[in-house]
């Protein structure tokens, strides 16, 4: 995880390990029908890479009344 760090060759495994600590398991075991929200572009991309789930940005989840 952590921005471009996770894309770096020498850091690929550490970045997956960090994700597996809590985030990826939480994403995989979420209740059915739950969308995952992540505001960072590389967070979304790396979550998708590791879990196959496509997260959305917070701004995509809510609208006002106007």
């Amino acid at each position: 995880m952590a921005g471009s760090f996770g894309y770096e060759k020498d850091h690929y495994d550490l970045s997956l390990a960090v994700g597996e600590d809590r985030l990826f398991p939480a994403v995989r075991s979420r209740a059915v029908g739950t969308a995952v929200v992540a505001c960072g572009f590389s967070c979304r991309h790396q979550i998708a890479h590791a879990t196959g789930v496509r997260p959305v940005h917070f701004v995509e989840t809510i609208r006002g009344c106007q």
Partner: peptide, 21 residues
């Protein structure tokens, strides 16, 4: 300053907060 009602097309959300946030 923001009046409701607020809407969402989602039913359940799991939030991953960015580390810098």
């Amino acid at each position: 300053d923001l009046e409701g009602p607020f809407r969402s097309e989602y039913g359940k959300l799991l939030i991953h907060a960015h580390c810098h946030r």
